[in-house]
Computed example of a mutant assay.
Amino acid sequence: MSKALILGTGSCLPQKTLTNAELEQIVDTSDQWITSRTGIKTRRISGEGEENFRLATLAGQRALEMAGLSPLALDMIIVATLSPHKIMPSTACFVQAELGATNAFAYDINAACTGFTYGLDLASKYIQSQPEMKVLVIGSETLSTRVDWKDRNTCVLFGDGAGAAVLGGSEDGRGVLGSKLHSDGRLWNLLHMDGPESQNPELQGSDWEGALIRMNGSDIFKQAVRAMDDVVVELLEQQQLTIEDIDLVIPHQANIRILNKLQQRLNIPDDKLFINVDKYGNTSAASIPIALDEANKQGRVKENDLVLLCTFGAGLTWASLLMRW
């Protein structure tokens, strides 16, 4: 059976860097407080001309260049985002237009931080049934447009950016080997964001405070560690593998304490765990593809390596995905 193989990766980060010291001038916090609790030192913030779809397009272009493909070769574009350029049309349609990928159909998905992994799983299913397809999967966020800059518990965490991967069919055993996806909508209130205020008076919520990210940090921490641990174990058991068989683990870059706890529970050696949360913060759906592109360009992954992705986000959603590079 044909598998979906990553042919190229790309990423795009805004020019502006926001440091912890600069955040001290915005909200009641300190570099020491942020670093000790999150591991984040800097994050990127979009400026003029760096809208979500523009970041996504540049990441996609770079992935196509690495793959040696023209935008016209694409059959499908998926953009995972919770901070779309517009409610409609989809950010993916803007990307399609910017790329000139006129042969592709395009749509967005929203699984929050888990979105890119969900997107890879979708692309894999399409390619299994139609091996000739070429699919561009992008995770792209401008979370600076959705952050409450008066809330020190959330505004210090998030950053902007985009990452992308181009996938095509492979018959040599490399590609996506398996995945596990989960959701639990009963816990939506632990991490959520309202939409624009309703223009229907009968559907206006009394607790509407703007389209801003709201989070119960302590409960999210507990859920994230447990869920990612469980979903990695579940996938490894399905594939009859152990963590020792994996060459590189790329987790969602949410918070260094979550990553350290996950590493401890799964016994992941330092040299097999990719971490860049200190530079970019939590970029939600863009987190894993940015890390994947960095790992690829740094030579951290080689042909036939086993690469494991694991992630957790609002919904609640969580997932793991295993590929042979």
Rank of each mutant, 00 (worst) to 15 (best):
P196V: 02
N200G: 05
G205N: 15
Q130W: 08
E234W: 05
S183H: 09
Q240I: 04
V232Y: 06
D245H: 06
A211Q: 14
V135C: 11
D184Q: 08
G168Q: 09
V135D: 10
I246W: 00
L236F: 02
A254M: 00
N216W: 12
Q253M: 04
A165F: 03
D148T: 02
K150H: 12
A227Q: 03
T142N: 13
I138D: 01
V156Q: 03
G139F: 04
G161R: 04
L187W: 11
L187D: 10
G195S: 04
Q240W: 04
A162G: 03
A227Y: 01
V147F: 03
E244G: 02
E132A: 10
D148E: 06
E237R: 10
L177K: 07
E209I: 15
G161F: 11
W149Y: 10
H192R: 10
G163P: 11
K134H: 09
C155G: 00
D184W: 06
L136W: 00
H182Q: 10
G169Q: 00
D230H: 12
R174A: 07
Q239K: 15
D219Y: 08
S179I: 05
G161K: 04
L167N: 07
G168A: 08
R214Y: 07
L191P: 07
Q199T: 15
D184V: 09
R174I: 02
Y126V: 09
L203A: 14
L203T: 14
Q238D: 12
E202V: 11
T154I: 01
H182W: 07
I138G: 00
N153G: 15
E197I: 14
E244N: 08
G139R: 02
T142W: 01
T142C: 12
S218F: 15
D151F: 03
G175R: 02
S170A: 14
N216D: 12
D247W: 04
S124G: 13
S198E: 13
L191V: 10
V232N: 09
N216T: 13
D172Y: 06
D184N: 12
Q238H: 07
T145Q: 11
M133R: 14
S179T: 11
L157W: 01
Q239H: 06
E171S: 11
L248T: 00
Q199F: 08
I250A: 07
Q128Y: 04
A164T: 05
E209Y: 14
E244P: 00
L241C: 03
G178V: 01
P251K: 00
A165M: 05
D151V: 00
W149E: 05
N189Y: 09
Q238F: 09
S206P: 09
F158A: 03
R186A: 14
I258Q: 07
Q240H: 13
